[in-house]
Simulated scan of single mutants.
Amino acid sequence: MTSPSVRIDAWLWAVRIYKTRSLATTACRAGHVRLNGERVKASQQVRPGDEIRVRIAGFDRILVVRETLAKRVGAPQAALALEERTPPPPPRDSIPAFALRDRGTGRPTKRERRDIERLRGR
Results as ranks from 00 to 15, higher is better:
1 M>I: 06
2 T>M: 07
7 R>A: 12
7 R>C: 14
7 R>I: 07
8 I>G: 01
10 A>T: 14
11 W>P: 00
12 L>H: 01
13 W>A: 05
16 R>D: 07
17 I>A: 03
17 I>G: 02
18 Y>E: 05
19 K>G: 04
20 T>G: 07
21 R>Y: 11
23 L>M: 11
26 T>D: 12
27 A>N: 02
29 R>F: 03
31 G>H: 09
31 G>Y: 10
31 G>K: 05
32 H>V: 02
34 R>K: 03
37 G>P: 07
39 R>C: 01
41 K>G: 14
42 A>S: 15
42 A>I: 03
44 Q>P: 03
45 Q>S: 14
46 V>H: 01
46 V>T: 12
48 P>T: 11
49 G>E: 11
51 E>K: 04
55 R>A: 07
56 I>C: 05
58 G>C: 11
58 G>R: 04
60 D>K: 04
62 I>N: 01
63 L>M: 13
65 V>K: 00
66 R>Q: 14
66 R>Y: 04
66 R>I: 06
68 T>N: 08
69 L>P: 12
69 L>G: 06
69 L>A: 09
69 L>F: 05
72 R>S: 05
77 Q>H: 13
78 A>Y: 11
78 A>V: 06
78 A>H: 10
82 L>K: 14
84 E>L: 13
86 T>L: 03
86 T>C: 03
87 P>K: 13
87 P>E: 11
88 P>V: 07
91 P>A: 14
91 P>L: 06
91 P>E: 05
92 R>M: 10
93 D>M: 05
93 D>V: 11
93 D>F: 09
94 S>H: 08
95 I>R: 14
95 I>P: 07
96 P>Q: 05
97 A>R: 12
98 F>H: 09
100 L>H: 10
101 R>Q: 08
101 R>C: 13
102 D>T: 13
102 D>E: 14
103 R>C: 08
103 R>V: 14
107 R>G: 08
107 R>F: 10
108 P>V: 15
110 K>Q: 12
110 K>H: 08
115 D>N: 09
116 I>F: 12
118 R>D: 10
119 L>H: 04
119 L>D: 03
120 R>W: 11
120 R>C: 09
121 G>P: 05
122 R>M: 10
